[in-house]
Amino acid sequence: MRASDAERERIAEVLRDAVAEGRLEMDEFEQRLDAAYRARTHGELEPLVRDLPASGSAVAPVGPSRPAAPRGSAANWPDRIGGPATSKGAFAFWGGFNRKGRWTVGRTFTAFAMWGGGEIDLREADFEDRETVIRCFTIMGGLHVTVPPELNVEVRGVGIMGGFGEGSNGEADPAPDAPRVRVTGFALMGGVGVERKRTKAERRRLEKAAEEAERASAEQKRLGGGGPDAAGGGGRKELG
């Protein structure tokens, strides 16, 4: 089964406690921590803490009884496919609309904006079907589609005295089990844009992981510089 960011974080917490208690040497801690953040399945996570006690009094095991995966592109894609659609279209005339947060997009979603605009955010959305078509039509207006970097997206549209396309983003790396979304339609004297972007929560998780790796590297350099800890002279080792 695919592992989520929350599960990787629980494994990292066990590893941090283990190195603080002297159960792991710093080099082994770094190797396991790196493997934890690169793990994609439960089978890769479990061996990393099999010989260690749970963090604190108890840690939720890596298995079917764990809490649900977080929303955003970090969520398990198969869990987000299926179920009835909560919205199959949107309309804006001299105004605007938005579809974002927790919602289920229909297998065919049609959006129209005239002298107005609309926002379609798929980063935390569920999908009625694995294959989804989003039809965007705008006249002297604008439509903006936001998707997570891991989503499989194909953009096919026509801009007449306007624009229709996907912005470049180096993060784009579609996941094989993610839904496929095709964005089509036309923009007349207006624009339709597709942007790949992570949620704030996911960006914070990635920043936290980077900070932890940096702290671990700094601690390894400090211990390698000599002193009682480097010599293995007992006592509790604290992460910086």
Rank of each mutant, 00 (worst) to 15 (best):
A39K: 01
F97L: 06
S87D: 15
F112E: 10
S73A: 01
R40K: 14
I81D: 10
R135T: 14
R66C: 13
G191W: 11
P78Q: 08
K197R: 15
L122Y: 08
V194R: 10
V14P: 02
E9L: 14
E44Y: 09
A75W: 04
Y37D: 02
D229H: 05
V147R: 08
G22S: 07
V194T: 04
R71Y: 06
A35L: 03
R23T: 01
V192R: 07
E207V: 06
A12P: 05
M161N: 13
L206Q: 11
E21Y: 12
R135W: 07
A6E: 14
G233P: 00
G191N: 02
G163L: 11
F137K: 02
E30H: 01
R102S: 15
E154S: 09
T86C: 02
L206F: 12
G240R: 10
V49L: 03
F29H: 00
G118P: 05
I81M: 07
N98K: 13
V62T: 11
G227I: 04
G83M: 12
D121G: 04
A12R: 01
A18E: 02
G235N: 05
E150L: 07
G235K: 09
V59F: 05
G141M: 12
G142Y: 14
L143V: 06
V155S: 07
P47M: 02
R156S: 13
A178Q: 08
L48W: 02
G234Q: 07
E30C: 02
R66G: 15
V105A: 03
V194S: 06
D27A: 10
A125V: 06
G227Y: 08
E171T: 15
T132Y: 02
E202C: 04
V147M: 07
F164M: 14
A60S: 14
A68E: 15
A125Q: 11
E211T: 03
L52A: 10
L122W: 08
I139T: 13
A20Y: 04
D17H: 12
P78R: 10
A39L: 02
G95P: 09
R196F: 07
T104Y: 11
L151T: 03
A187T: 03
K221S: 05
R16Y: 06
P84C: 05
R23W: 03
G232E: 08
P70T: 08
A36R: 00
F93Q: 13
V14A: 14
V19C: 00
P67N: 13
V105G: 00
P67Q: 09
E219Q: 03
P53F: 14
E7P: 07
A113M: 11
T108R: 04
G141I: 14
A111L: 10
F97A: 02
G240P: 01
R205W: 13
R102V: 12
V158A: 15
L122Q: 09
G190F: 15
P78A: 11
G165P: 01
G63W: 05
L206E: 14
V59E: 15
V192I: 15
R50L: 13
S4K: 00
P84F: 08
R196W: 07
P84A: 15
L239H: 05
M189H: 06
N76E: 13
G106L: 10
D126N: 15
G232A: 07
W94P: 00
F137I: 15
P179Q: 10
G89A: 11
A210P: 04
